[in-house]
Amino acid sequence: MKNILLFLALSSTILFTSCEGDPGPPGEPGGLVYAQVFEANVDFNYIPSENIYETSFIQFPFEVFESDVVLAYRYEGRGDIGNGETADIWTQLPQSVFYLDDTGDVYQYNFNHTFVDIQFTIEGNFDLTNIGDNPDPTTNQIFRIAVVPAEFAKTNPSMDDLLEVMQTDGSQIEKIEL
């Protein structure tokens, strides 16, 4: 009896492991998708009528889609990371800079973009012609631009749609009072 059960177990194992069905349909192309990054060294031009500094428009050196996410960083210099080593320091935009202590004067590095190009600006709450100190914050500025691939969401559900999916009328949602 033991030999018969052993024979059936081995036979069924061989039978099921050697079966192969029709191949399924091909899937979506795979692989890793990485953000693309480039750097731009820019000088700002003052626009007196708007009291802002702005750069020329910088074309993306690769294809960018309207749904992609664009991040920008300003180079701050090098910093000590220990053991006598240094590394680049990058600050994400927008970046506010307090111009003079106790004056409330602030200017801000910012950017705007389309899926074709990017432009950097310096905006402030005072006459920006005064910010040309040592070092000059309007010349020889290095920015790192990262474009992260993304897709627009296929749906944009309303609150009613979400409550329906949750199978609730909203009475079970916790309310927080501040």
Rank of each mutant, 00 (worst) to 15 (best):
Y99G: 02
A146R: 08
A72Y: 06
I89V: 14
Y46H: 04
A72E: 05
F98R: 04
T17S: 15
L10D: 05
A35L: 06
N51R: 02
T91I: 11
A87H: 14
G27M: 07
P94N: 02
L32Q: 12
L163Q: 01
P61T: 07
R74K: 12
L178V: 14
V64E: 03
Y53A: 01
Y73H: 05
E123C: 02
A146S: 10
M166T: 07
D161F: 02
F152C: 00
K175A: 09
F126N: 03
A72W: 07
F7V: 11
R74Q: 06
N130K: 12
I118C: 00
N3P: 08
E174I: 15
I89D: 15
T121P: 00
L6D: 13
Q59E: 14
G79A: 11
N3I: 12
G79R: 12
E174M: 09
G30T: 09
N110L: 04
D101I: 15
D68K: 04
F120H: 02
L93S: 01
T13P: 04
P48H: 07
V106A: 03
F62S: 04
G30H: 07
Y46P: 02
Q95M: 14
S18I: 06
D133M: 13
A40C: 06
D43N: 10
D169Q: 04
A87C: 08
G84K: 05
G27E: 09
G104I: 06
Y34M: 11
I89L: 14
K2I: 15
S171L: 10
S56K: 15
Q92M: 11
Q59F: 14
L178C: 07
I81M: 03
S56N: 13
V116Y: 15
N140D: 07
L178K: 09
A87S: 09
M1Q: 12
T155W: 06
E151P: 01
V116R: 09
F98L: 03
F60R: 04
N140R: 06
V64R: 03
I81E: 04
L8Y: 10
N156M: 06
T91S: 13
T138S: 04
Y53E: 03
F126A: 00
S171N: 10
S49K: 10
F38R: 00
F16K: 02
E54Q: 13
Y99K: 00
L128Q: 01
D105F: 11
Y46E: 04
I173N: 01
F65A: 05
N112E: 10
D161C: 01
T17A: 11
I52N: 01
S158Y: 08
W90I: 02
D80R: 07
S12P: 06
